[in-house]
Write a protein that binds this DNA or RNA. Structure first.
Lengths: 332, 332
DNA sequence: CTGAAAGCGCTTACAG
DNA sequence: CTGAAAGCGCTTACAG
């Protein structure tokens, strides 16, 4: 493998000069530069990034933890992060925790030795107990997409999940719905709170018995929960699901139960996912600004760290947005 | 930041001894080891992975190129790769090319300087022109999930895509279908060939006019292509879509056209994706062995490279499998 | 504009 | 079982 030294000898200069032409930080006489570049091409020289990292102290790589990549939300987030990283000339080291605390711990420990310049951790309950591992980390850490129990010690860029539920609720209220049910998965309690708040504003209470749980946000879970909701309260005119896949299941359940959507039943989801677009009718949903979240989080991470005299730990909350499509309509 | 030297001083030994206790490669007297470990804990010492990489010549990181991560196929592949990597104690550097040749080129160039130990490239036409950039790479490269124009120069672990189409065709043949149409996207010509072969075996020809193209494998494209197919040949009893999302669209089109599935029309997809499971009726499909592909590809990559006296460039073809669900039935 | 020197933090033979 | 030395391939001041 050819090194900078080899190039230098070939070009009849020292390796410092080669380094100068590569980095462009120091002016080099044009004729010298030409000789060096020729030598680089002839030899097929490629700088060794590891050596450079040891000398400069940065790897131009940032780590990203996500629970999974199979889900549209996190897949989008990963690509958004990668885009912003590319603008900054950084690479992406990816770790999916797969809802496995032990696995998360191992990966966290494995990265904590400056093989990355910074670390972005997308909301994951599995990781929360292991965050103290980062106490000796030599790089900045920011948290994003954190929905509950947001740790106070780290900067956070996340979404106003409470408001996302509120938007769904307000939409249904504006359509005149009073008898509603909620399909929720356990991790989404904040969304349910927001939803309830939209009704509480008008003095309407969404009782606990109107909230039907699905163990996780799955299509099948949505079908089952919707059937349960409709059976428990046949007079229900609208359903709010804390995630689109749950809502997609609810649409199937509605059909099975002989309820037409939106005529006989309105359904609103959350996350504005491909599953919602794919449903018939297309799902009204609440979009979560993941790309904006990625941008802000990475910029926080890559911001001049020397100017670390910042007094407060940054906490940013991004606003979701209602997307009205075909699954919601006025209450009968 | 505390270094190995700091630990050594604290423990009253030299840094070589610290290195020995950390690596465990050389036996260390128990009492010495205890002192060293205590010093490590007290100081919160974390080895610098970059320095280690420079000294050892390996980064314990492998790069993976995929077109995107938003699609279930590649998302699964990424997680499968990560799983195998973890078994080997390696990290994952991820690059999505996003069907953008220029972007792919930049990333490829950026990695070619030994910031990874090995590189796995999942089929991507955007990358194919830039593969020569790898000629000076200091690490092994293998290709996977490559569907057409498989480069000869590199080891390949891929799926028998032709056979996947064949399995779909044979299934339909066995159900007695003769008048069939194909919904295909341009990248999937191999799958169409295989499908045709299953019919050709019985002397039945699937004519070009029965093949309806969708610009890409999208839900909307599937709806449009299916409508076109049904309009062009109302007597069609079965549809083969080269991807499940196309087939999911076809299911919607069938409903819109008043054709019941599978009674009045059979539909078979390919890829055994979540979209297919989510469809009503659940889609008959052909599963592609992505996890097995990931395993074999990574093991090829990480295999003892010193034993590189292997004569032939490895080429492995994995077998897909038919998954019969509810969208196919006997021809009327 | 170019060269000599020191150093980044480890690991790897090699002596003792 | 432990220590002294050299080296991995760069970059960064610092002289000239």
């Amino acid at each position: 493998m050819v090194t900078m030294q080899d190039v230098a000898e070939r070009a009849g200069v020292t390796k410092q000069t080669v380094s100068n032409v590569i980095s462009g930080r120091v002016a080099v006489r044009p004729s010298t530069e030409a000789r060096v570049r020729a030598a680089i091409d002839e030899l097929g020289y490629l700088p060794n990034l590891v050596a450079r990292s040891l000398a400069t102290g940065n790897t131009r790589t940032v780590g990203l933890f996500v629970p999974t990549v199979v889900t549209a939300f996190y897949a989008d987030l990963v690509e958004a992060v990668e885009d912003v990283l590319e603008e900054h000339g950084h690479h992406l080291l990816l770790c999916t925790t797969r809802r496995d605390g032990e696995r998360a711990r191992r990966h966290l420990a494995g990265l904590t030795s400056r093989s990355v310049d910074a670390l972005l951790i997308a909301g994951d309950q599995d990781l929360i107990d292991h965050l103290p591992l980062l106490s000796h980390a030599r790089f900045p850490v920011v948290l994003c997409a954190w929905e509950t129990d947001v740790p106070e010690r780290y900067p956070v860029v996340t979404i106003d999940y409470d408001h996302s539920g509120y938007l769904a609720g307000r939409h249904l209220r504006e359509l005149g719905h009073e008898r509603v049910a909620v399909l929720a998965s356990p991790a989404h309690s904040v969304r349910v709170e927001g939803f309830r708040r939209a009704f509480a504003v008008d003095g309407v209470t969404v009782p606990d018995r109107a909230v039907h749980m699905a163990p996780e946000p799955s299509f099948r879970g949505g079908i089952a929960a919707a059937h349960a909701a409709l059976a428990a309260a046949p007079g229900t005119t609208a359903l709010f699901a804390t995630h689109d896949v749950l809502a997609a299941g609810a649409l199937v359940a509605a059909r099975e139960a002989g309820r037409s959507v939106p005529r006989g039943l309105s359904v609103v989801g959350l996350d504005d996912s491909p599953e919602g677009l794919l449903s018939r009718p297309a799902l009204t949903s609440v979009a979560l600004p993941k790309r904006e979240m990625a941008r802000q989080a990475i910029e926080l991470l890559l911001r001049d760290r020397t100017a670390s005299g910042s007094p407060a730990i940054p906490r940013r909350l991004l606003r979701p947005e209602l997307v009205v499509r075909d699954s919601t309509g006025p209450a009968a």
